[in-house]
Amino acid sequence: MNSQTKSQFIAVASITSELSAVMVVAKEISLAAANAKAIAFRAGDKAKGFQPITDFINELAKETIELVTNINVYALLLYRLTVNEYRRTAAYNRFEQVAKLANGAHYANSMQEPITHAKTMMQDCQRQFKRDVTQLLGQLEAVMHHARAARVIAANSRIEASQAGEYLQSLQAVAESVDKAAHTIHDNVQRCRIALSIYRNS
């Protein structure tokens, strides 16, 4: 296995790993939203501005979970494509080796067709991989967008929390946890994007 193939396998495997962490964090946001909703309900008028925010946080978490679930399916396809590309490349290299070793053999020329076919298949896989990576990067960008939105919500939550009297601390804690989660999602997804960006279609 050459170093390019190795790093391709690692890049694809790392997406699954990073995204499973994102999934955990998104679920935490969803929990924080439920918690915030309960606090806001208890706070009544004092947290009137906070109540719509909790729904928004919850919706954002759900959408992130859905996006990551889809991306995971896509990452699995990308993994299979990587395996396929590896097999095709290995076959092409072996066939080239056959052509060299068969030099002078009566039927050496009959190897040309399998070599050409293997090369085409290998190149098809490489092109497909680049196309799929480009699409995956687009989906990851959508998750990043959600993470940025979550940070804006966290900032708004802090403002609303400051007007919630004795509930200030509880609601600020919610805002903090949303902000922290948004940071984590952003960082993890950014690492995925960096790992994949060298393979994208130029």
């Binding site: 056959v98 068969a102 053999a105 009566h106 039927y107 190897m111």
Partner: peptide, 10 residues
């Protein structure tokens, strides 16, 4: 495979 090509085409 190279050896077989002395006896039969692919």
């Amino acid at each position: 495979m190279a050896a077989v090509l002395h006896h039969a085409p692919v």
